[in-house]
Design a protein around this nucleic acid. Structure first.
Lengths: 333, 333
DNA sequence: GAATGATATGAAACCCATTACAATAACTGA
DNA sequence: TCAGTTATTGTAATGGGTTTCATATCATTC
């Protein structure tokens, strides 16, 4: 069952490979009407499908791009994958999805494989631990866009949330409600993952702007399975907080689970705001106030930035785009 | 900035391309220790990465597989993508993720592109409307596994949920609680999508097994945005149901949203069970009883079935594997 | 009827690896 | 020392397309 090749078509239609190739590339002006129809019929008859590998090898373009997410478990990652897939489908590209699992080794492996497979570009949520690799791509002028996280010194086009603002929106809201004792919980910040850092910075800055001194006991950065313990610590404090800012969707889940378990009433006993909107936020009891990331807008922007690099457009945009989050006011605060 | 090729390495190391190629394929017995080290050093020095396209063209294997999900919006789809990605990463494969959007045209386009790109196999949630295409893959002996849905007449290896059992578990649970008026809501069943059909069949069969006549007014198959209207219809019935079985996670969301909006108490006013577990099920108020699909197990099985086809193993398994769902008993019923 | 130009087609190089096999070099034992 | 191995390396074909450019064909014009 050997596949049909362009040579088979050429022989069968009694023309040369090159003419068939011209046909495949819709350069009909290079052949007569008769030849065109003959080739058309032959392709139909043999059910021929061109081998894109061979074409890509010559043309140096695979119409494939790689998407390396840091952790596919986050709702945000899947939203981004979905939106990017959608964008590139419209442009005739395929996406290869890779999950680095927050593991720099895995990330490295993926990036190297993607480049070896000659993808036309990569959108990556960088773990931050492969500086050399990033630099090499940069110096090779390989199309690349960072998402969600920035690597300061690199000058790579980046799309991320205005994380400081995200935290600030939440703090402002809490303060508006007369709450000053605000805790923040994020997942681990090994390797200086920028969003987590920035959210904590934004939190501190916002508190200061309201003249509230921040209490370091109110700041918890822990692994997911350590969240219940962290919450217990916070609640055992002499001055327990009146509000919690959950740093991402997974943290929010754990926080809500904890409140449920310990029968702590939201928002009376504790006010809650989560960064990242979650599907159930609008019908949970109470409904949950969240800070929504414009995932689709961010994805489209990242895709466009990548496309302009792929198309070697002049606009060498290497800036960091910070998109604005939205406060979705609901009942949990 | 032209890329380094095997020829560059060969010239630089003063050996032939073939020797370098042997080195790349770790066939060190074809060269002396000295040559091996020379090549090794040169590759290091030039930072050479082989072009996998060229290799794939010759070897007729791309170490890439396609995953075409019917609708990436379902939690189940993303769970499957995640698990399959994980499985294939372990085996040195990449996955290309495609979202058919429940659109047979898009599905067709994707399948043809994937084959043109010479992927080694495809895992697909078939829309069911591309019979010719499925048949052709089958007759080409192209590695393919169906997931979530079966196409009866085709004899393609398939992994899916035991949907009848899923519905039955739910009905049994309702009946156990003394509830007999049970409604079921699924999303649209144009094109005879098998899970939806089977879940309704299972629902009917389970009712009968309990000696309960089913009421066709209790069965709603509608688009997502029509769910509130469908619910209103059901609640306006003379004999309104005491329970609702939500056919998938998205339906469950809409049902819960409706109940919240109309202040209908779960489980007192209405008992609810959802097919597909959702992240918030265990801390919602009340916690939600769900029928959980073993997504990871199903994905691994599908991946293994595909791998055995790719490796041309003897075991020509073309059967339909129906995995058992689990009832996660919580408070909503 | 030859020169001209436009149209149509094919030959061959190329993309970058792999691989079968030929060629050379080094080494063995008699 | 020389045939006979064995170890090492190189040549060339191959995979399936694209692309450049030469050639063939044909109609047109003078």
């Amino acid at each position: 069952m050997k596949p049909i090749t362009i040579t088979d078509v050429a022989n069968h239609a009694k023309v040369s490979k090159s003419t068939v190739s011209q046909y495949l590339n819709k350069r009909y002006e290079y052949m007569s009407e008769k030849t065109r129809r003959k080739i058309e019929a032959t392709i139909e008859e043999l059910n021929y499908q061109p081998n894109i590998l061979a074409r890509s090898l010559k043309q140096k373009s695979t119409y494939t791009i790689g998407v390396v997410v840091a952790n596919i478990l986050h709702t945000f990652s899947t939203q981004v994958i979905r939106a990017i897939e959608n964008y590139f489908y419209e442009h005739g590209f395929h996406i290869i999805v890779c999950n680095a699992d927050d593991n720099p080794e895995k990330e490295k492996n993926y990036i190297e494989m993607l480049r070896a497979k000659q993808v036309d570009g990569i959108i990556i949520f960088p773990t931050g631990d492969n500086l050399d690799l990033y630099k090499r791509m940069k110096s090779d002028q390989f199309p690349i866009v960072f998402m969600d996280r920035t690597i300061e010194e690199l000058n790579v086009a980046t799309v991320m949330l205005d994380n400081q603002l995200a935290a600030q929106l939440a703090v402002d809201r809490f303060v508006e409600k007369g709450i000053e004792n605000i805790a923040i919980i994020t997942t681990s910040i090994i390797r200086d993952i920028s969003p987590r850092i920035e959210r904590i910075q934004g939190y501190k800055a916002a508190l200061l702007s309201h003249g509230i001194a921040f209490n370091s006991e109110y700041i918890k950065t822990v692994n997911i399975d350590e969240i219940p313990a962290a919450l217990s610590e916070i609640f055992d404090l002499e001055k327990r907080p009146q509000a919690i800012l959950a740093g991402n969707d997974i943290v929010l889940n754990e926080v809500l689970r904890y409140m449920k378990k310990h029968r702590i009433t939201i928002p009376d006993d504790i006010a809650i705001i989560g960064i990242d909107d979650v599907p159930y936020a609008s019908f949970y009891t109470p409904t949950i106030t969240t800070i929504d990331q414009p995932a689709i807008e961010m994805s489209n922007l990242a895709a466009e930035l990548l496309m302009s690099q792929i198309n070697k457009e002049e606009t060498k945009d290497t800036s960091v785009h910070r998109l604005k989050p939205t406060l979705l006011m609901r009942d949990s605060c």
